[in-house]
Each structure stands twice: as structure tokens, then as C-alpha cells.
């Protein structure tokens, strides 16, 4: 019975994905990526075709579509955000890439350095895709020429993993670091739906239901994604502390939290994973524009996003609404019946069976979630 329910949820989620893709008149590209101008993706979208024509089997384009992900920003760099932002173009041209024999694209750092060198003393238009709702924007970054008497830092330890870009930087440090990463990696997030263990690890650490999303954990253990990955990591950290990085959609900020996992290996909250639980678009209040005009150092004040539209990126609000309404209508009847079903099963089981069942950490199907 439970397996059937879980399969139903997966079918439902897949149908949402398919509907969204079809509604955008693009058969393959994930709706989350369709805010990116097609010309910025052309170089990457062409290479898999070439690879296929050579008889090499290629994976889904949504899994390989990549950008220069911001992995670190300086304290004084306010234009970019780590984790969420990807550079997908310069001056409305794609990131220069080269393809290997398997059809996979990699950034041409030599040409990228040339672009920055050419813009010394000017601003460079950088095309950014953000994982917050899958939105696209432009940032104008000032490229400051390096003074002639500036000396480059040369590491005494030769590190094979960090080769030079092949061309001397004629500009000062930009205040951010990047790594070529698939865009899909930023969708591996776990939405806190509710706290189910009073005074449990989640509640003690201050996780906020509906508002919070776990986007990563110490050492990047969540980087590969997967519906059960968080659950597996938490279970493996029983009796230990675990550092999680949490995004709050109301305050539009990321904070680190430390949770102490008990001997049962549970986080104490239900989490949602998948298309419906990606980071939503940030919505600012109308007063922000006025505030920016009056204040030299404005702090935008995000407005709480209603849960009805929270998971729907702004670029495609229309298609999912009917689907969402259906699930809302079901909420009053079907889930209660399912809860009764599960509770009935628990009451009849033996004590040993109960403890074994509690380790399963099964997701309640009506919310497309998993329990940790």
C-alpha cells in the first residue's frame, strides 16, 4: 500500500515536470533553466548532439548544463551570492568553453581571463543565473587594473589541482571564486515542512517549518543530492554534531546551524525534496525602491512568500496552479485517511516491530516528503 502511494507521488511529480516543460514549448530543458537566454546555452546544447552523432551515449542535458558557480565571495562583494549564483555569460555571450572527446564542455579559462583583461578600467556585464526561483539577471562588475608595481602572490607549494589560467591577470582580485558546476546541483535542497519531535535536534537548532531549506552540510556532504541523502547522513551522525547550512526564504539569508543528532539518528522534522521544494524566487516589498532612493546603504526587506506559490519560479507561474489546487483539495480528505492507515498499522505491531519501523523514516506521501 505504502509503495503504491509513493509511486503515485513520483508519478505526480514527474507529470508536473513534464507539464511545465511542454508548456514552455521546449521538450528537454528543465523549466528552472529556461530564464537563461538560449544564445548563452547554445555552445553547451550543441556539444551533446555532436557526441551522439559520433556514437557516444550522452546523459540528460539538464544534468550536464553547467555554469561558473560562485563558491566564495569576499565580504565586500555585494553583487554575487555563493551557492545560488552561476555565471552563464559575459556581455551576453556564452562562457567560452572547449569540449573534450566525450562531448562534455569545460570553461576556457584562458579566453575568460582575456575578457577580463580587455575590460580593465571598465565594467564588465556578467550574465547571472540564480537558483532562487531559477531567475536570470545581469551584474556590472568593475574591473580594476592592477598597479604596475603590484606583485603576484606565488605559492611555494605547487598544487596540481589549481593550474593557472595560462594568461597573466592584468586586473585586481575580483572578490569571488568560481567552479564549473552543473546548474542542477543548486536544486539539491531539502525543504523543512514541519517539526515532528518536540525538543528534538531540529527544534533545538531553531529550524523554521516552511521557511527554511537545508542547502548543504559540513564538508559538502549533500552536494551530490538525492531524496534520501540527508536522511542517510543524519543517521550516520548519530550521537554527533552536524553542521547544516540553512536558507530562510523570508529573510533571504543563509545561516549555519549545528544540530546534535541523538542516538536514534533522527533530525526530528519532515523534509520535502524535488521539483516542488526548490528555492523560490525572492519577493521584495514595494517600499524597497523608495528605500533605496533615500538610503545610501539600503537593506532590502523581503516579504514572506505565500506557500501557495512558494515553490513556483516566477517565469512559469501559470501551469502548476491547477495541479497545486488539486493537491490542496485532496488535503482535507485523502491524507487523513492515509494517516489513519499508518497509525492503525503501528498500533497493532509489536514493540520490536515498532522500533524497526521507526528506523525506516518513511515520507508521508501526501506531502511528498521524507521524515528525518
Amino acid at each position: 500500500m505504502f509503495r503504491i502511494a509513493k509511486n503515485l507521488v513520483r508519478t505526480f511529480e514527474q507529470s508536473v515536470q513534464d507539464t511545465l516543460a511542454l508548456s514552455q514549448d521546449s521538450s528537454n530543458l528543465d523549466a528552472f533553466f529556461q530564464s537563461i537566454p538560449p544564445n548563452l546555452l547554445s555552445a553547451q546544447l550543441e556539444s551533446p548532439v555532436d557526441a551522439v552523432s559520433e556514437g557516444v551515449k550522452h546523459t540528460n542535458v539538464n544534468e550536464t548544463l553547467s555554469g561558473l558557480r560562485i563558491v566564495w565571495v569576499d565580504e565586500m562583494q555585494f553583487q554575487l551570492q555563493s551557492f545560488f549564483d552561476y555565471i552563464v555569460g559575459f556581455n551576453d555571450d556564452p562562457v567560452p568553453v572547449v569540449s573534450n572527446q566525450h562531448g562534455f564542455s569545460y570553461p576556457d579559462y584562458r579566453r575568460i581571463t582575456s575578457i577580463f583583461n580587455e575590460h580593465c578600467g571598465r565594467t564588465l556585464k556578467v550574465n547571472i543565473w540564480s537558483a532562487k526561483g531559477g531567475t536570470f539577471r545581469d551584474e556590472y562588475i568593475s574591473i580594476i587594473s592592477k598597479e604596475s608595481d603590484d606583485l603576484d602572490d606565488v605559492s611555494l607549494n605547487h598544487d596540481e589541482r589549481r593550474p593557472s589560467s595560462g594568461e597573466a591577470h592584468q586586473f585586481q582580485a575580483l572578490g569571488f571564486k568560481v567552479q564549473w558546476t552543473p546548474l542542477i546541483a543548486s536544486t539539491f535542497t531539502y525543504h523543512i515542512l514541519n517539526v515532528n519531535i518536540p525538543d528534538g535536534p531540529a527544534q533545538s537548532a531553531g529550524l523554521i517549518p516552511d521557511e527554511d531549506y537545508i542547502i548543504g552540510c559540513q564538508d559538502g556532504l549533500l552536494a551530490t543530492g538525492g531524496e534520501t541523502l540527508l536522511q542517510d547522513i543524519v543517521r550516520s551522525r548519530a550521537n554527533y554534531d552536524l553542521v547544516l547550512y540553512v536558507y530562510n526564504k523570508v529573510s533571504d539569508c543563509v545561516r549555519p546551524i549545528t544540530v546534535h543528532i541523538g542516538p536514534d539518528g533522527r533530525l526530528g522534522c519532515n523534509v520535502g525534496y524535488g521539483f516542488l521544494h526548490r528555492i523560490p524566487t525572492v519577493k521584495h516589498c514595494p517600499q524597497q525602491a523608495q528605500q533605496q532612493g533615500q538610503d545610501d546603504n539600503p537593506v532590502p526587506v523581503p516579504v514572506p512568500v505565500e506557500s501557495e506559490t512558494a515553490f513556483v519560479p516566477s517565469a512559469f507561474t501559470a501551469p502548476p496552479v491547477p495541479t497545486k489546487k488539486k493537491s490542496k483539495n485532496k488535503k482535507g480528505t485523502q491524507p487523513l485517511a492515509m494517516d489513519d492507515y499508518f497509525n492503525e498499522g503501528r498500533d497493532k505491531s509489536s514493540t520490536a516491530a515498532k522500533s524497526a519501523e521507526s528506523d525506516i523514516l518513511a515520507p508521508p506521501p501526501q506531502k511528498q516528503s521524507s521524515s528525518d
Partner: peptide, 30 residues
């Protein structure tokens, strides 16, 4: 009760992913 003051203190903070295990390819460039 959600502590908004505490949350707003993290507004300008960015997570450092340079030491994370990653599915990205190639070196971290700056």
C-alpha cells in the same frame, strides 16, 4: 516565535564552499 533580528544578522553572510565536496569539475578559479 521566529527570531527575525537574529536572521537578519546573516543577510550579508555567504557560505564558503571552497572546501566542500563538489560535483563541479575542474579547479576553483578566482
Amino acid at each position: 516565535e521566529v527570531d527575525r533580528v537574529m536572521l537578519n544578522k546573516w543577510r550579508q553572510w555567504n557560505v564558503d564552499m571552497t572546501t566542500w565536496r563538489s560535483i563541479g569539475s575542474g579547479p576553483i578559479m578566482e
